Computed example of a mutant assay.
Amino acid sequence: MDDRTLNDLLRRFGLSDKEVDTYLSLLEHGEAKASTVADAAGVSKRYVYSVSESLAERGFVEVNDHVVPTTIRANPPDEVINRLRSDVDAIRPGLEERFSRVERRAEQFEVIKSRVTVIKRIRSLLDDATEEVTLSITAKQLPEVRDALVEAVDRGVLVLLVVSDAAAKPDAEPGSGTEADAEDETDATDSNVVASGLDGVASVVRTWSEAMPTLLTVDSAAGVVAPPELLRRSSTDRQAIVFAQEQLAPVIVGSFLGNYWPAATEVATAEPATLPVEYANFRHTVLQVTLQLRSDVVPRVTVGGRWTDSGEEVEITGRVVEAKQAMVEPTNNEFPVQHSLVVETDDGPVTVGGQGAFVEDVEADLVRIEADE
């Protein structure tokens, strides 16, 4: 290896030009006095002492200051290489962790221009759902994701669905008949979707005749936002966004429940679950308690969570005397996203909310619902 290549490689390990010259001079002498190294490297004796201390800290040399005059010895190359290799291995986890953070940030958002890809992403996210789905989708596209929704409901996932744009008329395909025929066929299709295509497709279904964005959130962690034009038209420059960000998903859920859900009309609600059941998702808890109360079943709950004022862990048990909610009609919430329970315990009534609760007494992590004996 020529000197220039060797110098370049050593500089990659953080050595300056003078440090490289000093180290190479020491390699040629093995062990030498500072004055000898200074003459060979073309630097001052004081500089050799300073550089030698720096090289010693990194394992390149050993300074013997117990003798007079002080000598400096180059460590064997194998020792130096093993030390450098050990340092590289030590920093690998930190570098990989920081790199993976960048990758995760880059993957948090995906821009999509194709309707087909939007539907594919929605199906994929629905397949991964474990606790909660909120979805608004057009009547025309509902059949494309229906199976994934049914499977989610069968897994015990809370699914709140708005079927929008039910009155939309898609463009007739060439050769498919007259415009009137296309409209008649569309009316029949939309009517069938609303009337008979909703069995088992969601926990609660609402419809809205107006066009609205396609909004999907899954487990308050990921989802899709797509403008109406992207799913209604075969050619448009509008784009959809797929996101995987826990800070954004609750905002989308809030918009869905606070703005779009109240404007839609309830058309289907699932039957109450067979008790006992247990939920980590608090909105699912509130929905089931509401359905039980309306079926003349007095639900008794065991709530594991923490007091909102102190953060201290707590478990409470008692009969539910009231459920505040906005998922099924008639709603009785006091503000748009309120979902809470009033539980009558041996120590008196306790209000219970979900993740992030601050108005209620208890923030719930897990709730078991049973019929009160």
Rank of each mutant, 00 (worst) to 15 (best):
L287V: 07
G177Q: 12
I369Q: 00
R58L: 12
E360R: 01
D147Y: 10
I241C: 08
E363S: 02
L291H: 07
D89Y: 09
S114A: 11
D181R: 15
R238Y: 08
D361K: 06
S340A: 14
T186Q: 13
G354N: 08
H284N: 02
E344N: 07
L10I: 14
W208V: 00
V194R: 05
P93V: 10
T351H: 07
D296K: 01
I72Q: 06
V102T: 12
G94F: 10
L126G: 03
E19I: 00
P299S: 03
V145E: 00
L230H: 08
D365W: 12
V162S: 05
A139I: 09
E97N: 15
F109N: 15
D346E: 14
L257W: 01
E31R: 14
V37H: 09
V116D: 15
G42I: 04
E373Y: 11
S44C: 06
A74M: 04
R306E: 04
V342L: 12
L341G: 01
D309H: 13
S255Q: 15
L366H: 13
E57M: 01
V303R: 01
K113S: 15
T351A: 07
K45H: 11
S86G: 14
G177R: 07
F335Y: 13
D127G: 11
L84I: 09
V111T: 15
V314G: 00
V116F: 11
V133K: 04
G356T: 10
V63E: 10
D147H: 14
V205F: 02
R101S: 01
E62H: 06
S196N: 14
V303D: 04
V48T: 06
L198I: 11
P299Y: 00
K140S: 04
S235Q: 08
G254P: 00
R73P: 09
R104L: 06
P77L: 09
T189I: 10
D87I: 05
L26T: 04
R294H: 04
S52A: 12
A182I: 10
E62R: 08
T36S: 13
E110S: 15
R283H: 11
R115S: 13
L230Q: 03
D171V: 13
A32W: 04
E271R: 00
D184F: 10
A202T: 05
P276F: 05
V205G: 06
S310H: 08
S54G: 12
E334C: 12
A268H: 13
L15V: 09
R233Y: 14
E131A: 03
T70M: 11
S310L: 09
P143A: 07
L9Q: 15
V337P: 02
A264S: 07
Y23S: 05
